[in-house]
Design a protein around this nucleic acid. Structure first.
Lengths: 335, 335
DNA sequence: TTGTATGCGTTATCAG
DNA sequence: CTGATAACGCATACAA
């Protein structure tokens, strides 16, 4: 059942049917009603491909994240999908993993599907920070469709970024630790992503501003995995000496909690722990984790808001938006 | 840059270009090479909409789940996306929530996008089990595209289901509890979905087969929320008497662990706890949860495998596939 | 092996 | 307000 069939049944031209479908104002109430009735009766739905071909858009946005089974990314996609759906856009989802080649090919793939806009979720898409060429594929993509990045900052035309103020957050946590007399703060991270770099910088700045040295052996790389982190700490605590942990993810912090339990350390007295992302892991841990909430919901909303502005009104929108974090205090700290 | 431009530059017809793009065998090596070179040089990508219009497909499958921020669904989507990507299909994702109206309208929406196939992730799409009409919209959808359901069983033409053998799993857990002398097993659930019904049935059957009564006050409805569940148990433990918990989700089980901690009950001696889905919550809890692994990876693989068989080879495929669960024993039980 | 011509189902531009 | 008709970009049956 296509537009011709409906036109024939309604005894009008396809142009009129099209107008009714797109409810153009210039069609008489009577005609409109008649066509509408026939459409309903025959359950007519316009062919999306033809529509896309004519209009040059199917109102879909591509969302790429490294791994949707990650709690944080899943939440981001959830917010994005919801906001986009409210505005009549659909999401086509791609999970690229963390390898450069895969990221590039996934971006190309979605672009070839003629998405209206591309959203890149995750710090990993900002590259290592060492080589500007890492992000060339994003600037290239931005020539075909606007690119919005969440939790990453990349310079380039038609690239819009929204990220948490991780520097500020870790700066404050570190300062709070120092105030409580915690001077051997272990910074635990699992990648050198944009976000991780901001967090590290905040931690280091707070130490320096307070006149403390930044010790290399207090920066500890692990995996975002409870068991792995626990074991790493058990292994390294023989040579390491620390009284508090600042982790770049709740999964890491949860591992630190497990470690403390095994070592019989009291939390937060003997070991204070701060996690990140304020995820369900923070609530599942025992004691519950103090965690930095990076305001993902706000970031996603601001992203979609600007995107719609750009798409619908071709408005000038902010290129870079930085969202302040919130430190959610629970039982693993006493600052 | 479209197919005409390439044809002109390569000095061939658009038919030849099209053949090269779809690498048809009937094109000379020399011509093919020439066209390929021009295509690369000009970074030509066929217009997906036009392609879709001509072919009637854009090789996309629709995935609908109630809530992608749920760990379980996120994992399912992760598996599905990965498998589908391997076969050259893209995913368009929709999060419908749990309301009937929303589910129906989301299904219609994706269908109108001319997806090749629809995947419904989650037990909720099987309806309450009380009214067959609840699932009419699925049968209706199946007239337009094949529908694959994960963790739900719905009868109908062109509907294919894959689900875990939850009956078997809870039957075994219950039997194991009874063997260890646990006779007051609290069954905790958060919905009346297809899956929850299977789990309840397995629990009841095991009790009955062992000659125990099925007590109404040992079936406890809660939310899949740690804090909520903990508080509910603290409230109700005054009137309830139980020595073990069989929860339909790890989130519920984690709440039971928190409850036990507050009441000072030793786990698993005074209170044994079994969770479900073997999620990260099982590993984050302390002690770590014994949990039923519903083999989501296997379910997703079997779903996509059959789907591809149907799509590419129009083969006859199994309508209903039941996957056995695995009980992963950890520290909250001693059976 | 290659080219021509047509169909796919819309939207949009012009006339009327 | 309505209708005829030309794009939109590709795939393919049919000719050559």
């Amino acid at each position: 059942m296509n537009i011709y069939d409906i036109a024939k049944l309604a005894d009008v031209s396809i142009a009129t049917v099209s107008r009714v479908v797109n409810n153009s104002p210039k069609v008489s109430a009577r005609t409109k009603e008649k066509v509408l009735a026939i459409m309903k009766e025959n359950e007519y739905t316009p062919n999306a491909f033809a529509r896309g071909l004519g209009l040059g858009t199917m109102k879909t946005v591509g969302i790429i994240c490294p791994d949707i089974s990650d709690i944080y990314m899943a939440k981001a996609v959830s917010y994005l999908e919801s906001n986009l759906h409210d505005h009549g856009y659909d999401c086509i989802l791609g999970c690229s993993g963390f390898k450069q080649k895969e990221k590039e090919s996934y971006v190309k793939l979605l672009l070839s599907k003629k998405i209206d806009t591309l959203i890149l979720v995750g710090s990993t898409y900002a590259g290592s920070g060492k080589d500007e060429a890492d992000t060339d594929y994003i600037r290239e993509a931005a020539e075909q469709a606007s690119v919005f990045m969440i939790n990453a900052k990349v310079a380039g035309d038609n690239i819009y970024c929204t990220y948490a103020d991780d520097f500020q957050a870790t700066y404050e946590v570190t300062k709070a630790y120092l105030r409580r007399g915690k001077e051997k703060i272990l910074f635990m991270y699992d990648s050198e992503s944009f976000s991780a770099r901001q967090k590290l910088a905040g931690y280091e700045a707070a130490l320096q501003d307070a006149g403390y040295p930044v010790l290399g052996n207090l920066k500890f790389k692990t995996k975002n995995d409870i068991e792995y982190t626990k074991n790493m700490l058990l292994e390294y605590n023989k040579v390491l000496d620390f009284d508090s942990v600042l982790a770049t993810d709740d999964g890491i912090a949860a591992g630190a909690v497990k470690y403390a339990k095994i070592k019989g350390l009291s939390i937060p007295e003997e070991l204070s722990i701060t996690g990140y992302n304020n995820s369900i892991l923070a609530l599942c841990s025992d004691p519950e984790l103090t965690s930095v909430d990076s305001k993902l919901g706000v970031m996603c909303r601001k992203t979609v808001e600007r995107m719609i502005e750009l798409l619908e009104n071709e408005a000038q929108i902010e290129k870079n938006v930085c969202v302040p974090c919130e430190i959610v205090r629970r039982c693993t700290t006493d600052y």
